[in-house]
Design a binder for these strands. Structure first.
Lengths: 224, 224
DNA sequence: GGAATTATTGATCAACTGATTGATAAAATA
DNA sequence: TATTTTATCAATCAGTTGATCAATAATTCC
């Protein structure tokens, strides 16, 4: 039950050089990763520093060496998650010259991809969203992320509307609100993904466009 | 704690026995009310039996007298909330002979009413929804509630479609999924209530119906 | 090689937490 | 009235939890 049991998880003492700086960053990342694992299993209600340390294979004191308090660990997690979502979402160089419908579907595909391949990230995000109600620091991070997402969607909808693909009576702001809200709600019942996506598409896209798109339906759906 | 207690069926004794039985029920209700208060302020992460007891103005031991464990208290809360939502939602005597659009708007009005006048209930519900992921007992209660709600919405949408008010291309199941999902999402950003409701209306109702309804937008009471 | 810095650990603390116990009113019952 | 049941509380227990500290190993720097 003593410490040595956990030793094999990490790097061994005599191991060749890795600069300390890098080690420190690795450790932090490793601790945050462990935090996510524990968080998914137990939620914030059952998040214990001891569990996180054990999950990471280090002593509690080591955890406190990198994150002096539990709150700092949580905020570190929030920041990390913000980065991950931003880079995986990557508005980056505007892939604007896509047809509006394809971009919308890309958005849906992104969501499905998150659920299928990056579920862990989504589950942790859900926990953070819930906690953000009582934690201004987390709220700041998430609000900025959400605002960014909404802006992106609005621009998508605006372009598609000018293009004549989306219903003109639905304003971009309205459409973006509907999209974000529905997708947040989908976090709670992901089995409705497909059906809700279809409904959202119908709500936003002109019927003619959908029909004519239905005929030539064979589109490959992913870009990496 | 004896087995003897099972014998007490004598309800129609001449005595006006308001005290003990009533007291016990009151205490339980009071403890559950206190639980809601603490839960809203601190979430499950900060839900402590001591805090609940203090909020209710009783000793911890008294709390444990009525709810032997914390879990039982939480399940009691879940059951109570289920009842509250069912009675306030009250599918009851089918108010069916309303025009579909009015019924849909009534659904929105219900949601808005919850938010304005019964926010506490909604906030606690949100906490329970979140916890239901890791608690089968709570999940059962909420799933049945959700299923009921969805059925109600589907019937509403089916009737309205037959009536020729809703878009025929949106199936009732699809519409209900969109509605429930969006409304769950709205719990997280209630400031979008109005705009999302408008979007949902547009997504479900035939454009003509909306337009013609827009003109005479002050004819309040409706009898068919 | 040796000092300074970085990284890790076992042990431990003080406060907290869910739950129990024994005593004891208060009410119901016979 | 006497006895049993119901309801409440102060005190306390055993285990948990976030955090600290002194000791020490590993790495970097001179």
């Amino acid at each position: 039950m003593k410490a040595r049991t956990t030793a094999q998880a990490g790097k061994e003492r005599g191991r060749p050089k890795r600069s300390l700086r890098t080690t420190a960053l690795d450790r932090r990342a490793q601790l945050i990763e462990a935090t996510m694992t524990v968080l998914i299993e137990h939620g914030f209600e059952g998040l214990r520093t001891r569990r996180v340390a054990e999950q990471a294979g280090v002593n509690i004191a080591t955890l406190h060496y990198y994150f002096s308090t539990k709150e700092k660990l949580i905020h570190g997690l929030a920041d990390y998650l913000g980065e991950r979502f931003r880079t995986l979402h990557a508005p980056g160089p505007p892939r604007a010259r896509n047809p509006g419908l394809a971009r919308l579907r890309q958005e849906f595909a992104d969501a499905a991809f998150y659920w299928e391949k990056n579920r862990k990230l989504l589950l942790v995000m859900q926990e953070l969203i819930h906690r953000s109600r009582r934690c201004p620091e987390i709220d700041r991070v998430l609000q900025s992320l959400l605002a960014e997402w909404r802006r992106e969607l609005e621009s998508l909808l605006r372009d598609g509307r000018e293009e004549g693909i989306f219903r003109p009576e639905v304003s971009p702001a309205e459409g973006a609100a509907l999209l974000t809200t529905a997708m947040m709600g989908l976090l709670g019942s992901p089995d409705l993904f497909d059906i809700v996506f279809r409904a959202l598409e119908r709500a936003l896209v002109k019927p003619e466009v959908l029909e004519q798109n239905e005929e030539k339906k064979d589109g490959g759906s992913d870009h990496s």
